[in-house]
Each structure stands twice: as structure tokens, then as C-alpha cells.
């Protein structure tokens, strides 16, 4: 009897339900708020420009970044043929900075992405299951958490040996614990909310609940946190290269360039400071960007 009544109503309301309420989607409203935040937009544009620069380096760079000249070493900024000077082996600084963006950005972004995947998975699993699973995962993570991140990165890189892959691997390991920790605490909070219970009461399984109700609410904060790690990762990667544990010369990479140019700091301080300036610029932009995204994602305001 009542079922028939429902069907009649469904048929009746089916016709006008074609057009939708003009409400913005969540991510669209986040995006529009981001667009209003000038600082964040500028930072995003700077990072975008740097990424494009890295991708199109061979077309943009005026010189071969590896071609040196014994005669033209350590030219100052603005000298002829070397707009940003030359380094200790007479290589064009501008070209090296442009090419250096490739490795530096890769080593800043890839470890964080890998750690986001692994750490997020660990954290969500731990937070969602709770109990013993949580204890097992989080206590293991805590062991890594006990070491300062720089020390851990250096120790792992040192143990695995120098090289780009090993540096990325060690940085990934360094960033898994903090991301897992954030993912776990957010998941634990979300899991206790009534809508997760309501979903369970609808007969949904764990996988569906995680996919529909947990991921969307957890990945936001975790993603923002990961963005703030990008700058740290950039600096750590540069630090590893500086110590000779990341990229090897003659490959252009900002951290390594900073190291090799350090001997020239008294002859040509401005040229020596350029790679550091680039590292500073990128990490600064990533930091401001993550702050901007964080406040744009705050729905309740």
C-alpha cells in the first residue's frame, strides 16, 4: 500500500527534477576561494613557472649546462655571454639553474608523493581499524619518528650509498611517519562521527565506507600537510646533495651547486648564493601555497 504511494510520488517528482540546484561543489568552492587569495595565486604561478621551466629546460637554457671553460671561470653576474655569471668550472649559471630545477623539483616532489601514498594508506588503515592494528602500525612508525628527519635521511642515504634513487628512497622513508601520523589522527576523528555509523547502518562494507566517507574527509587535511612537507623535502634533498649523498657532479642540482660553489663565496658571493636563492624561493612558495590551501579548505567559514 505504502510502496504504491511512493511510486506515484516518484513519478510525479521525476519530471521537474531535471535542472539542479545551483550550488557549487566542494572542490569548486575551495578553488574559487583560492583564486581570491592573491598571495597563494602568485605562489602557485611561480611554482607553475618553475615546473614549466624544468620541463622545457633544453629549449630555454642558452647553453649546455655541462660545458665548461677554464678561461671563463667565476664570471660575475651580468658579464658578457653569462647573464647570471659562471661557476667554478666556467659553466653558465643560468643554464645550470634552469636544468637544476629538474632534479631539484623531482627530488622535492617525488618522495612526498610516494610517502603520501604509503603513509596515507598506513595511517588510514591504522585509524580505521583501531585497536591492535593501530598499535602495531603506529608504534612501528613511531620508531622512525624518534630520529630527527635530517639525521634519518642522511643515515639511510649513507647506508644505501649515494645516488638519486637512493636519495629519493631515503626521503620517502623520512616522510612516511609524519604523513601516517596525520592520516591516522584525522581518520580516528572521522571514524567516530555519526555519518560513518549511519553508513555502516546502511549495510555498507568497510571498503565502501573508506572510499566514500573516509577518504574524502581525510585526504584534504593530509594533502595540505603533505604540501607543507614539499619545502622541507626540497631542502633535505638539497642537503643530501650538498653532503654528496644525492646527485653526483657534474649533474646540475641546486643543493650540489651550492656545495661546489661554496669555495667561491669570497670571490663571487652573488653567484654562489644563486642556487640557495632558488631553493629558498621554491620552499617559500610551497609553504605559502600550503597555508593558502589550508585556509581555503576550511568549509565552515
Amino acid at each position: 500500500m505504502s510502496a504504491a504511494a511512493v511510486d506515484v510520488r516518484e513519478a510525479a517528482s521525476a519530471a521537474p527534477a531535471a535542472q539542479f540546484a545551483p550550488t557549487q561543489g566542494y572542490w569548486r568552492s575551495v578553488f574559487s576561494r583560492l583564486m581570491r587569495d592573491k598571495v597563494t595565486v602568485i605562489c602557485a604561478l611561480v611554482i607553475l613557472a618553475l615546473i614549466l621551466m624544468a620541463v622545457f629546460a633544453p629549449w630555454i637554457a642558452p647553453e649546455d649546462p655541462l660545458k665548461g671553460s677554464v678561461m671563463k671561470r667565476l664570471r660575475p653576474i651580468g658579464s658578457e655571454g653569462y647573464p647570471l655569471g659562471s661557476d667554478e668550472l666556467g659553466r653558465d649559471m643560468l643554464s645550470r639553474l634552469i636544468f637544476g630545477a629538474r632534479l631539484s623539483l623531482v627530488m622535492g616532489i617525488v618522495p612526498v608523493l610516494c610517502a603520501l601514498g604509503i603513509g596515507g594508506l598506513l595511517g588510514i588503515t591504522a585509524g580505521f581499524h583501531g585497536g591492535r592494528v593501530n598499535t602495531a602500525i603506529m608504534r612501528t612508525v613511531d620508531v622512525f619518528y624518534a630520529f630527527p628527519s635530517v639525521l634519518l635521511a642522511v643515515a639511510i642515504s649513507g647506508a644505501l650509498g649515494a645516488g638519486i634513487t637512493n636519495a629519493i628512497l631515503s626521503l620517502t622513508i623520512v616522510f612516511i611517519p609524519p604523513i601516517a601520523r596525520v592520516a591516522e589522527s584525522v581518520t580516528t576523528q572521522v571514524r567516530a562521527l555519526d555519518y560513518v555509523e549511519a553508513a555502516r547502518a546502511s549495510g555498507a562494507g568497510n571498503f565502501t565506507i573508506i572510499r566514500v566517507h573516509i577518504l574524502g574527509n581525510v585526504m584534504g587535511p593530509v594533502f595540505v600537510y603533505a604540501t607543507s612537507l614539499l619545502s622541507v623535502c626540497m631542502i633535505l634533498a638539497a642537503g643530501l646533495s650538498f653532503l654528496g649523498l644525492g646527485t653526483k657532479p657534474p649533474l646540475p642540482e641546486w643543493g650540489l651547486m651550492l656545495n661546489t660553489l661554496r669555495t667561491a663565496i669570497f670571490q663571487n658571493p652573488w653567484v654562489a648564493a644563486l642556487p640557495g636563492l632558488m631553493i629558498f624561493l621554491v620552499s617559500f612558495c610551497f609553504n605559502l601555497l600550503s597555508d593558502g590551501v589550508r585556509s581555503a579548505m576550511d568549509v565552515t567559514r
Partner: peptide, 8 residues
């Protein structure tokens, strides 16, 4: 709390 804030 009983409605998912990310879902319509």
C-alpha cells in the same frame, strides 16, 4: 555529525 560534509 551524521551527514558527511563532503557529500551533497
Amino acid at each position: 555529525a551524521s551527514l558527511n560534509p563532503r557529500l551533497t
